[in-house]
Every structure is written in C-alpha cells, then in structure tokens.
Write a protein that binds this DNA or RNA. Structure first.
Length: 198
DNA sequence: CCCTGATTCGC
DNA sequence: GCGAATCAGG
C-alpha cells in the first residue's frame, strides 16, 4: 500500500481527531502503526497538542533547563533545526456532557438468578467508587458475551434474563478483568466487615 | 502486559 | 519517502 492522496487525507483527518496511530493504521489497512507514525512525522504534523499552550502560559514560569544530553551508545544526536509549526490550534475538550442529575427513580435491580460476580454489597464500597461506576456505566461499550476479549471489561450489567444486559466492555486495567472503575468496586480490601471479632 | 508516540536508519 | 526496529513512557 502506498500513501495516496486519499489515504493521506484520512490519516490527517484521523490524526487531527486525536485517533491513535494504531487506530489509524487499522482504518487504513495495509500499514502498521509505525508506518502511520512515520508518515505523520514526515508530513510534519506531529504534535497534536503541543501547539496550543493555551492552558498554561502565565502560570509558573519555572526556569526549567534541560541541557543534559542523553549519552546514546549508538546513534548521535545531531543538531536538528526543529521547525515547530505552531498551529493556533484551539485544544478544547469535547466535553459533550450535560451534568444531568442522576435518573430519579434509579433503582438498583437485583436480578436474582445467576450467581452475580463480585457485586459487593454496595454499602461497603466507597461512595467514590460507586459514583465512578455509575458514571462510566453510561459510557460502557455494552458488549455481548461474544464480543468480550482479554482486554474488555467483563463487568456485567443488568439482568442476564432480559435485554437489559451487557458487559461493560471498556478497556481493562492491565492484568485485571475489569476496567478501572469496576476494578474499584470489584476488588475491595474486604474490610469494613469489622465483625472480625470472633 | 498492553498501548502510546518518537527516533533512527537501511532500503 | 518508507517503515521495522527500537526506544521511552503510561
């Protein structure tokens, strides 16, 4: 595959959208993420964020110095006239969220039927974690059993016997079977149960 | 471990 | 110009 105008266009668009190199590579097909990154650099459209320091200018003019050079055993760092093309890019967060209050009659249904995973008694989990879960649950990928992979959160939501059932599906936290939020409620130090006293 | 982008360098 | 290999982080 070669970098046709069309493919380059797609590359530019996706890169601009903040897509990762690997995602772009998948989209284009026939290239690896390395190829994409390489092309991105050659096109000169590297830094997607660095251009707009619109969020930390007058803050702390720390006199930072970075004269130290990394002693590379191999290649040598040659003075490259970096042509930083600073595009007046407005880096705005696509905050498309209306902080709507929680659904009024939100009731935590307890299916009863299949042995639910971890689902720890809510009363022992930090409100923090719970809030987080409710939060991300809205963003869940809602995958079906078949769509789960080693890297998708396997936290089940809803009643397996109804349509209202899916698996979180968000990126798992390395090693764990759940995403960050669900790991938070799944792996509790199992404390609180202070009735430890025998 | 999985994923990111950054760099280098033979082709 | 291209991109695999490699590097450096998260």
């Amino acid at each position: 595959m070669s970098w046709t105008d069309e493919r380059v266009e797609t590359l530019k668009r996706m890169w601009g959208e903040g897509q990762s190199a690997s995602q772009i590579a998948k989209e284009l097909g026939g290239v690896t993420r390395n190829a994409v990154i390489g092309k991105v650099h050659r096109l000169g459209l590297s830094n997607r964020a660095g251009a707009a320091p619109a969020a930390a200018p007058a803050a702390a003019p720390k006199a930072e110095a970075k004269p130290a050079e990394k002693p590379k055993p191999k290649a040598e760092t040659k003075p490259q006239p970096r042509t930083e093309s600073a595009r007046p890019q407005e880096s705005e967060e696509p905050v498309l969220e209306t902080k709507s209050a929680q659904p009024p009659a939100r009731r935590a249904i307890i299916p009863a039927g299949q042995p639910l995973p971890p689902q720890p008694s809510a009363n022992e989990i930090s409100p923090e974690a719970l809030a987080k879960v409710n939060e991300i649950e809205k963003k869940a990928k809602k995958l079906s059993l078949m769509e789960l992979t080693e890297r998708t959160c396997k936290w089940p939501v809803g009643d397996p016997a109804t349509e209202h059932f899916w698996f979180c599906g968000l990126p798992v936290q390395q090693g764990k079977p759940y995403c960050e939020a669900h790991v938070g409620v799944a792996f509790q130090p199992m404390s609180s149960r202070r009735d430890r006293r025998r």
